[in-house]
């Protein structure tokens, strides 16, 4: 591949190859402050490529590949190359990672303990984590949280936060503009802008923390808290995990332990301020 970069996010070393300069340059800018070890062999390989040679230049469209390829994935225009790179990195981790139980969940940490938030896109888990991560919390990740199979600790995957639509303005108002990536409008996921996590979140990304609270947020509607039983939390987290089945009994044991040890709640909230207040309130109760 013509342009290559190596990026480490949490425990995952990526090798990213691209036929265009732009996506790699944009990634290098977002991940400039991350620790780098160019000699370390990669855990996951990402490729951004043109389906036909001439499509490198003529209406260039970026196909996503690497260790794993999803056959029917549509390409993105080169102007959204950074989004293509982000999606490709997610895909390789989602399909390839086997060292930890991988949850499609955001997480933040305080006092050596973790708040884990799991939900579909649109649940606000990413925005809540980003906003909490600008306050007294350490951002662990907005998309994936890793659970250590033997010990049960949570590990961070603090990739650049993918802010979407309204969340962009909400977060941009509170952070140094130098921490924001380029605004990509009209992508298949709406408007997207990346946020570079705070330096303390990157510096602490290898520090495991004990899970203390599980939230299943739902954006919209009246403020509400529903305690969730172990069984339901278990079911929801198997659905939120991309590698639960592949891990066999180790995954079963880790997940059983997580839902038994950590209180879980479904929460509904009308806006971010209410969501944060709920999270803080439940955190105080869970960790007192």
């Amino acid at each position: 591949m013509k342009y290559v970069s190596r990026i480490a996010v949490g425990p995952v070393q990526f090798r990213i190859g691209s036929e265009w300069r732009e996506p790699v340059a944009a990634l290098d800018r977002l991940y400039a402050a991350y620790p780098r070890d160019d000699a370390r062999p990669a855990d996951a390989t990402v490729r951004l490529f043109a389906a036909r040679p001439w499509r490198r230049w003529l209406r260039p469209s970026v196909h996503i590949g690497g260790d794993f390829v999803v056959p029917d994935a549509l390409p993105l225009p080169l102007s959204m190359g950074l989004l293509a790179a982000e999606m490709a990195m997610n895909l390789q981790v989602a399909l390839g990672w086997r060292r930890h139980l991988l949850l499609h969940a955001s997480a933040v940490a305080r006092d050596g303990r973790a708040l884990i938030m799991s939900g579909q896109s649109g649940s606000g888990k990413s925005t809540l984590a980003a906003l909490l991560g600008e306050g007294a919390w350490r951002l662990m990740g907005d998309e994936f949280t890793l659970i250590d199979l033997a010990g049960g600790d949570a590990l961070a995957f603090p990739r650049a936060v993918s802010l979407k639509n309204q969340a962009i303005a909400e977060v941009a108002a509170r952070v140094d503009p130098a921490r924001l990536g380029p605004l990509m409008t009209g992508t298949p996921k709406g408007d997207i802008r990346h946020l570079i996590p705070r330096a303390d979140a990157i510096a602490a990304m290898h520090q495991p923390v004990r899970p203390a609270l599980l939230l299943f947020p739902r954006f919209g509607g009246e403020t509400a808290i529903e305690p969730m039983g172990e069984g339901e939390a278990f079911v929801r987290l198997t659905e939120a995990s991309t590698n639960y089945v592949a891990l066999g009994e180790a995954g079963f044991a880790a997940l059983t332990r997580l839902v038994r040890e950590v209180p879980a709640f479904g929460i509904s909230y009308p806006d971010s301020a209410a969501g944060i207040a709920l999270a803080e309130q439940l955190w105080a109760e869970a960790t007192q």
């Binding site: 039983g229 172990e230 069984g231 278990f234 009994e249 079963f252 059983t256």
Partner: peptide, 11 residues
């Protein structure tokens, strides 16, 4: 079989 009761469900 490894049987783990989880509240009202059993895994």
């Amino acid at each position: 079989l490894r049987i783990e009761p989880l509240g009202e469900l059993t895994a």
